[in-house]
Amino acid sequence: MTHAAHAPTAHYTSMGLDSRKMAFWAFIGSECLLFGSLISTYLVYKGRSVVGPYPHDILNIPFTSVSTFDLLMSSLMMVLALAAVQRGDMKWGKIWLFSTALLGLVFLGGQVIEFTEFVHKGLTMSTNLFGCTFFVLTGTHGAHVAVGVLWLLTLWVRALQGRLGPANAMTVEITGLYWHFVDVVWIIIFTVVYLIQ
Protein backbone atom coordinates (compact mmCIF):
# COMPACT_ATOMS: atom_id res chain seq x y z
CA MET A 1 0.00 0.00 0.00
CA THR A 2 2.45 2.64 1.10
CA HIS A 3 5.82 3.08 -0.52
CA ALA A 4 6.87 5.63 2.03
CA ALA A 5 10.64 5.86 1.84
CA HIS A 6 11.23 5.83 -1.90
CA ALA A 7 8.76 8.32 -3.17
CA PRO A 8 8.99 8.81 -6.93
CA THR A 9 5.83 6.90 -7.84
CA ALA A 10 5.02 9.14 -10.77
CA HIS A 11 5.56 6.32 -13.29
CA TYR A 12 4.73 6.91 -16.91
CA THR A 13 1.41 5.24 -17.76
CA SER A 14 -0.30 4.97 -21.14
CA MET A 15 -3.62 6.29 -19.88
CA GLY A 16 -2.13 8.93 -17.60
CA LEU A 17 -3.95 7.39 -14.65
CA ASP A 18 -2.07 5.91 -11.72
CA SER A 19 -2.00 2.12 -12.10
CA ARG A 20 -3.12 1.41 -8.56
CA LYS A 21 -6.01 3.77 -8.95
CA MET A 22 -7.05 2.14 -12.19
CA ALA A 23 -6.88 -1.28 -10.55
CA PHE A 24 -9.13 0.03 -7.82
CA TRP A 25 -11.67 1.29 -10.25
CA ALA A 26 -11.74 -2.14 -11.86
CA PHE A 27 -12.09 -3.66 -8.40
CA ILE A 28 -15.01 -1.38 -7.62
CA GLY A 29 -16.65 -2.36 -10.91
CA SER A 30 -16.32 -5.98 -9.88
CA GLU A 31 -17.71 -5.23 -6.42
CA CYS A 32 -20.76 -3.65 -8.04
CA LEU A 33 -21.65 -7.05 -9.45
CA LEU A 34 -21.06 -8.66 -6.07
CA PHE A 35 -23.42 -6.30 -4.27
CA GLY A 36 -25.72 -6.23 -7.29
CA SER A 37 -26.20 -9.99 -7.03
CA LEU A 38 -26.77 -9.78 -3.27
CA ILE A 39 -29.27 -6.94 -3.52
CA SER A 40 -31.12 -8.60 -6.43
CA THR A 41 -31.46 -11.77 -4.39
CA TYR A 42 -32.83 -9.73 -1.50
CA LEU A 43 -35.41 -8.18 -3.81
CA VAL A 44 -36.33 -11.48 -5.47
CA TYR A 45 -36.91 -13.09 -2.08
CA LYS A 46 -38.75 -10.14 -0.60
CA GLY A 47 -42.17 -11.19 0.67
CA ARG A 48 -41.45 -14.88 0.11
CA SER A 49 -40.70 -15.81 3.72
CA VAL A 50 -43.18 -18.36 4.97
CA VAL A 51 -42.71 -17.56 8.69
CA GLY A 52 -41.91 -14.35 10.57
CA PRO A 53 -40.40 -12.18 11.82
CA TYR A 54 -40.96 -10.06 8.73
CA PRO A 55 -39.05 -6.87 7.93
CA HIS A 56 -41.65 -4.47 9.33
CA ASP A 57 -41.80 -6.42 12.62
CA ILE A 58 -38.20 -5.90 13.35
CA LEU A 59 -36.35 -3.22 11.37
CA ASN A 60 -35.61 -0.17 13.47
CA ILE A 61 -35.49 2.74 11.05
CA PRO A 62 -34.64 5.54 13.49
CA PHE A 63 -31.71 3.57 14.89
CA THR A 64 -30.35 2.69 11.45
CA SER A 65 -30.86 6.24 10.24
CA VAL A 66 -28.39 7.32 12.88
CA SER A 67 -25.91 4.69 11.68
CA THR A 68 -26.41 5.85 8.13
CA PHE A 69 -25.78 9.45 9.12
CA ASP A 70 -22.67 8.31 10.97
CA LEU A 71 -21.33 6.56 7.86
CA LEU A 72 -22.11 9.60 5.71
CA MET A 73 -20.16 11.79 8.11
CA SER A 74 -17.25 9.36 7.93
CA SER A 75 -17.13 9.98 4.19
CA LEU A 76 -16.88 13.69 4.90
CA MET A 77 -13.99 13.01 7.30
CA MET A 78 -12.33 10.97 4.58
CA VAL A 79 -12.53 13.89 2.18
CA LEU A 80 -10.98 16.16 4.80
CA ALA A 81 -8.27 13.58 5.51
CA LEU A 82 -7.28 13.39 1.87
CA ALA A 83 -7.26 17.18 1.52
CA ALA A 84 -5.06 17.51 4.60
CA VAL A 85 -2.58 14.87 3.44
CA GLN A 86 -2.43 16.40 -0.03
CA ARG A 87 -1.50 19.80 1.34
CA GLY A 88 1.01 18.22 3.71
CA ASP A 89 -0.86 19.10 6.88
CA MET A 90 -0.18 15.84 8.67
CA LYS A 91 -1.48 17.06 12.02
CA TRP A 92 -5.01 17.33 10.65
CA GLY A 93 -4.36 14.41 8.34
CA LYS A 94 -3.94 12.20 11.39
CA ILE A 95 -6.99 13.63 13.11
CA TRP A 96 -9.26 13.13 10.12
CA LEU A 97 -7.95 9.66 9.32
CA PHE A 98 -8.59 8.62 12.88
CA SER A 99 -12.07 10.17 12.92
CA THR A 100 -12.99 8.34 9.72
CA ALA A 101 -11.92 5.05 11.26
CA LEU A 102 -13.70 5.88 14.48
CA LEU A 103 -16.99 6.62 12.74
CA GLY A 104 -16.55 3.37 10.83
CA LEU A 105 -16.15 1.58 14.15
CA VAL A 106 -19.29 3.26 15.49
CA PHE A 107 -21.16 1.99 12.45
CA LEU A 108 -19.89 -1.52 13.05
CA GLY A 109 -20.89 -1.23 16.72
CA GLY A 110 -24.38 -0.26 15.59
CA GLN A 111 -24.51 -3.29 13.36
CA VAL A 112 -23.46 -5.57 16.22
CA ILE A 113 -26.22 -4.12 18.41
CA GLU A 114 -28.76 -4.49 15.61
CA PHE A 115 -27.81 -8.09 14.85
CA THR A 116 -27.89 -9.06 18.55
CA GLU A 117 -31.28 -7.53 18.99
CA PHE A 118 -32.64 -9.35 15.93
CA VAL A 119 -31.35 -12.64 17.22
CA HIS A 120 -33.08 -11.98 20.56
CA LYS A 121 -36.29 -11.25 18.72
CA GLY A 122 -36.00 -14.58 16.96
CA LEU A 123 -34.52 -13.65 13.57
CA THR A 124 -31.46 -15.66 12.59
CA MET A 125 -30.01 -16.79 9.32
CA SER A 126 -32.00 -20.03 9.56
CA THR A 127 -35.37 -18.49 10.49
CA ASN A 128 -36.66 -17.53 7.07
CA LEU A 129 -35.65 -16.10 3.72
CA PHE A 130 -35.68 -12.58 5.12
CA GLY A 131 -33.13 -13.69 7.71
CA CYS A 132 -30.87 -15.33 5.11
CA THR A 133 -30.87 -12.46 2.67
CA PHE A 134 -30.73 -9.73 5.32
CA PHE A 135 -27.79 -11.14 7.27
CA VAL A 136 -25.71 -12.10 4.26
CA LEU A 137 -26.28 -8.76 2.51
CA THR A 138 -25.68 -6.48 5.48
CA GLY A 139 -23.00 -8.82 6.84
CA THR A 140 -21.04 -8.64 3.60
CA HIS A 141 -21.29 -4.90 3.72
CA GLY A 142 -20.18 -4.90 7.36
CA ALA A 143 -17.16 -7.01 6.44
CA HIS A 144 -16.23 -4.39 3.86
CA VAL A 145 -16.51 -1.66 6.50
CA ALA A 146 -14.32 -3.71 8.83
CA VAL A 147 -11.62 -4.05 6.17
CA GLY A 148 -11.84 -0.30 5.60
CA VAL A 149 -11.45 0.46 9.30
CA LEU A 150 -8.38 -1.77 9.49
CA TRP A 151 -6.94 -0.05 6.45
CA LEU A 152 -7.63 3.46 7.82
CA LEU A 153 -6.10 2.60 11.18
CA THR A 154 -3.04 1.26 9.38
CA LEU A 155 -2.63 4.56 7.56
CA TRP A 156 -3.16 6.43 10.81
CA VAL A 157 -0.42 4.42 12.55
CA ARG A 158 1.89 5.03 9.59
CA ALA A 159 1.13 8.72 9.92
CA LEU A 160 1.90 8.63 13.65
CA GLN A 161 5.23 6.98 12.82
CA GLY A 162 5.89 9.82 10.39
CA ARG A 163 5.89 7.44 7.44
CA LEU A 164 2.85 8.84 5.69
CA GLY A 165 3.15 12.19 4.00
CA PRO A 166 2.04 14.09 0.92
CA ALA A 167 4.09 11.67 -1.20
CA ASN A 168 1.55 9.01 -0.27
CA ALA A 169 -1.47 11.08 -1.15
CA MET A 170 -2.36 8.54 -3.83
CA THR A 171 -2.57 5.80 -1.21
CA VAL A 172 -4.96 7.91 0.83
CA GLU A 173 -6.94 8.76 -2.28
CA ILE A 174 -7.39 5.06 -3.08
CA THR A 175 -8.43 4.36 0.49
CA GLY A 176 -10.95 7.12 0.04
CA LEU A 177 -12.26 5.58 -3.19
CA TYR A 178 -12.88 2.35 -1.35
CA TRP A 179 -14.43 4.06 1.62
CA HIS A 180 -16.82 6.19 -0.43
CA PHE A 181 -17.83 3.14 -2.46
CA VAL A 182 -18.67 1.20 0.69
CA ASP A 183 -20.65 4.21 1.85
CA VAL A 184 -22.63 4.47 -1.40
CA VAL A 185 -23.44 0.77 -1.23
CA TRP A 186 -24.82 1.34 2.24
CA ILE A 187 -27.08 4.13 1.01
CA ILE A 188 -28.52 1.69 -1.54
CA ILE A 189 -28.92 -1.07 1.05
CA PHE A 190 -30.54 1.35 3.48
CA THR A 191 -32.99 2.46 0.83
CA VAL A 192 -33.80 -1.00 -0.48
CA VAL A 193 -33.96 -2.87 2.82
CA TYR A 194 -35.13 -0.29 5.33
CA LEU A 195 -36.94 2.52 3.58
CA ILE A 196 -38.86 0.67 0.84
CA GLN A 197 -40.58 -2.08 2.77
Binding site: R48, V50, S126, L129, G131
Partner: peptide, 17 residues
Protein backbone atom coordinates in the same frame (compact mmCIF):
# COMPACT_ATOMS: atom_id res chain seq x y z
CA UNK B 1 -24.39 -20.56 4.26
CA UNK B 2 -27.10 -23.11 3.47
CA UNK B 3 -24.80 -26.05 4.00
CA UNK B 4 -22.90 -24.84 7.05
CA UNK B 5 -25.13 -22.36 8.85
CA UNK B 6 -28.65 -23.56 8.17
CA UNK B 7 -29.66 -20.75 5.83
CA UNK B 8 -32.42 -21.41 3.26
CA UNK B 9 -31.32 -19.71 0.07
CA UNK B 10 -32.09 -22.77 -1.99
CA UNK B 11 -34.51 -24.58 0.33
CA UNK B 12 -37.83 -24.98 -1.38
CA UNK B 13 -39.85 -25.52 1.79
CA UNK B 14 -38.77 -22.10 3.07
CA UNK B 15 -40.15 -20.37 -0.01
CA UNK B 16 -36.88 -20.29 -1.94
CA UNK B 17 -36.73 -20.97 -5.65
Amino acid sequence: FDRFFGAHFYVHGAGAT
